[in-house]
């Protein structure tokens, strides 16, 4: 894996350097935007998924836009808003205005202080992002251990990009495995290899995203190169962890024959027996953009037809890969 260091992308400069032992110890709080119990689609069985905040990618189709920024953020759910206006009064920056059906936050003015959240009766406003220690997360995770046992489930770290907080995830997974829990890393693959390796030591299963194989298109749609991702995919494939490759099927981006063919070729040379999950594009995240006062980057893009999804699955299967649709 020497090429790893040789070809290191400038964008990644500094990632490995953050991992001195002292800093690693300090990083043992994770910035988390949700701990979702009874998760059923993020690995086998009944799971608790820890969603970590912060992601180096800015995929156009992201359904967790609140996960992208590392800092805490204000979000508003207009469906709950009763137009009482208390938030408008509470805001010292004059960043909030009522829209008749909800609120609009001027993000240039808003400093995410959270004063408005304090006065919101119907809980339409909330702050996204909490700092928790490994102990706090473990405490929550262990509460459902009997459900994991009966369903062969466990714990998943997702995001955001968990590798941005690799020392935290590694520490959390270590504790989970000590408690006999199955661990799953759900990753974009973009992160320092050193961090990834530290996490892999305590990981049973990796759900590894391969979004777009063509680097130019990858940069265009996710904001960064895929070179480190592809490198890390090989690291995971060479590790003892089980690996499932996840391909989001984005109309006009990753669902093209060219991309699927390239993905097949890449996966085939990783290691034998890799399962591929295809995740057809959905718009469930659309309202979250509104909550963050952002325009929905995918515009009017429509979900794929069942036929097209089936065709893609067929292409993977024709290449001898096990392929499942995950929704």
């Amino acid at each position: 894996m020497n090429d790893c260091e040789l070809d290191l992308d400038p964008a990644l400069d500094g990632l490995d350097e953050t991992l001195t032992d002292d800093e690693a110890a300090q990083l043992l709080t994770g910035r988390i935007f949700n701990i979702q119990r009874f998760s059923t689609e993020d690995g086998p069985g009944i799971r608790t998924t820890v969603f970590l905040k912060g992601c180096p990618l800015t995929c156009l189709w992201c359904s967790n836009p609140e996960s992208q920024q590392t800092r805490r953020q204000l979000a508003h759910n207009d469906a709950l808003c009763d137009q009482c206006g208390h938030c408008v009064t509470a805001c010292s920056k004059q960043a909030i205005e009522l829209t008749g059906t909800g609120v609009r936050v001027n993000r240039d003015l808003c400093d995410n202080c959270g004063d408005c959240v304090e006065v919101c009766g119907p809980r339409a406003l909330r702050m996204i992002g909490d700092d928790k220690t490994v102990d706090e997360v473990i405490e929550e995770v262990l509460r459902d251990r009997l459900y994991y046992r009966s369903s062969q489930g466990g714990v998943t770290c997702s995001g955001g990009e968990p590798l941005m907080q690799a020392p935290f995830v590694a520490a959390l997974f270590e504790r989970c495995q000590e408690a006999g829990l199955h661990t799953t890393l759900d990753t974009t693959g973009h992160g320092s290899t050193k961090g990834l390796k530290a996490v892999l030591k305590h990981t049973n299963l990796v759900l590894f995203d391969l979004k777009v194989m063509d680097d130019t298109l990858h940069r265009k749609t996710t904001g960064i190169t895929n070179r480190q991702i592809l490198r890390n995919a090989r690291v995971v494939a060479d590790s003892p962890a089980q690996m499932i490759v996840r391909v989001p099927l984005i109309p006009g981006v990753s669902d093209t024959d060219a991309n699927v063919t390239a993905t097949v070729q890449f996966v085939q040379q990783l290691r034998p027996g890799i399962v591929v999950n295809v995740l057809p594009y959905h718009r469930y995240g659309m309202n979250k953009y509104n909550m963050l006062d952002r325009a929905y980057p995918m515009g009017e893009a429509q979900p794929l037809t069942h036929e097209r999804v089936a065709q893609v699955v067929g292409m993977f299967e024709a290449a001898g890969l096990d392929c499942e649709i995950v929704t």
Partner: peptide, 22 residues
């Protein structure tokens, strides 16, 4: 939707089982 697939049904069954065991 949660009960459409066999996998979903199995998780539902595990949920029931654990609840009653507890």
């Amino acid at each position: 939707a949660s009960l459409r697939t066999k996998g979903g049904q199995q998780k539902f069954a595990s949920l029931l089982d654990t609840y009653f065991e507890k």
